[in-house]
Every structure is written in C-alpha cells, then in structure tokens.
C-alpha cells in the first residue's frame, strides 16, 4: 500500500517538475566595450549570457555582466548603471538604434531599475533577469539596453541618460521550442487555453468539495485495516503462549 502512495507522489512530482522548467543551458555572447565619455576616460565591458533555445512556458535566465575597464584614478569617479531594459525584437531590428518607446515591433519588454555605481576596475557586477518566450512567433533576438551615466561628466542629464545597446546572439536568432503535446490540443474549434485554465481551476475546487467525504471514508477504512492487522498479530502471539482453549 505504501509503495502505491509513494509512486503516486513521485508521479505528481515528475509532472510538476516538468512544468516548472528553468532553462539554464546557455551561450555566452561576444564581449562588447563601450566608451562613455568623449575623452575616453570612462570605459566598461558588457557580456551577455543566455540560452539559445527557449522552451515555451519556461523561465529563461539572462545574465548581464558589467565591468568597468577604465576609470580616472581618484576616489569619487564612478560609472552609475541606472537601469537595464530587455526587449524581444525581430531579427530585422538588429543594428537599428531606436530609443525605448518608439513604435517598433517588440514582442515583450522588461526593464529593471538598478542605480548602482562601479567604483573600481576589479569588480564585475552581474544582473539576472527571467523572461518567458513570446507565444506568437518562433524566432527573435534579444536587445539589451544599459542606461548609464558617469560622475565625471557634469553636463549629463541624469533623468535622460544615454543608452548602450547589445544584441544577443551575435549572429542568428533565438528559437522558441514548443512542446509536442501542444499540437494535439491546438485543434481547430478547441477552446482557447485562457478559458481552459479558468475552467480547470474552478472544476478542481468543485471536485475537492465533492471528493471530501470519499477521502474521509478511504482514510477511516485504511486506518481500520491497519488496526485489524495489528490485532490479528496479537491473537497469534496469544495462541503461542497457550491460554488453555
């Protein structure tokens, strides 16, 4: 009986783990260097690490490593990383430098506010962000914009700081991997998945209410069964002891 329950539990775990799929197998893009001021004193390197195939309905981690490579040798100079914007764009957008909010096809967009200074050239800071694959297309590229300003340039407007763009991957595109089962359910005339999610959760609640007394019955029967087995064992020992009957 125990093995049965354990196997059911393992099966549930298996199904659950299949759904919570964190994709970590990745590819590191080429290193890219930026010079932040015209005099060339402030420089930084940026490196993107992300998976090249994204399974549908899974979270894909994108890691951005930033290192300051050149800073004036004093105590107050620093590069301030203001924020990082992640955009999923079509391949044709590669190389076009457009600002955030412009009317270009963007499948998904996520921004992260950081505001952190890079004070020396030895430390590397990395930022990780999870993104899900778009549902409407199968291939796209990743555009990452780093908004940064320097302590040395006093004339810079902090609220409208310049951005430095990286495209990932360096060549080719990221592919969206769709599960095989999707094709089975994606028949013509089948209700959309939004409706199914709602319906399944509601039906689950109704099901729990309906099944509650049945579960109580099963538990009581199981407990009685165990007690009976214990009692029968006791009786056997009594007979061995000999009670004269």
């Amino acid at each position: 009986m125990k093995i049965k329950y354990i196997s059911i539990f393992l099966l549930v775990l298996l199904v659950a783990s299949n759904n919570l799929n964190y994709n970590t197998n990745g590819l590191t893009g080429a290193k890219k260097s930026f010079t932040l001021t015209t005099n060339g004193l402030y420089q930084m390197d940026a490196l993107v690490d992300a998976p090249i195939t994204w399974p549908e309905n899974s979270i894909n981690n994108i890691r951005v490593n930033i290192t300051a490579t050149s800073l004036p040798k004093d105590n107050f100079s620093a590069i301030y990383i203001l924020s990082i914007v992640y955009q999923l764009v079509p391949q044709s957008e590669r190389g076009k430098n457009t600002s955030v909010g412009a009317t270009i096809p963007i499948y998904d967009q996520k921004s992260k506010f950081i505001n952190r200074p890079l004070l020396n050239t030895t430390t590397t800071v990395s930022y990780v962000e999870g993104l899900t694959a778009p549902t409407s297309i199968t291939d796209f590229i990743l555009r990452i914009q780093i908004f940064a300003y320097t302590a040395g340039n006093v004339t810079q407007d902090v609220n409208n700081s310049p951005s430095y763009t990286i495209y990932f991957p360096d060549s080719g595109t990221i592919f969206v991997q769709r599960p095989q089962a999707q094709a089975l359910i994606n028949l013509y005339g089948f209700p959309p998945s939004v409706y199914l999610t709602y319906f399944a959760s509601f039906a689950g609640i109704v099901g729990i209410i309906f099944l509650a007394p049945g579960v109580v019955g099963i538990v009581v029967e199981f407990r009685d069964d165990r007690r009976k087995r214990k009692l029968s064992k006791l009786e056997v020992t009594n007979e061995i002891g000999g009670n004269g009957q």
Partner: peptide, 18 residues
C-alpha cells in the same frame, strides 16, 4: 468535460463505510 463528474457523484458512497 463533465464526464469526470460521474466519479464525484459516487464519491460520497465511500463515506458509507464510516
């Protein structure tokens, strides 16, 4: 979709044991 309801209808019968 309502076919699994058949199982839920008879679930209270297990309670009869109790």
């Amino acid at each position: 979709f309502l076919i699994p309801m058949a199982l839920f209808v008879v679930a209270p019968l297990q309670f009869n044991y109790v």
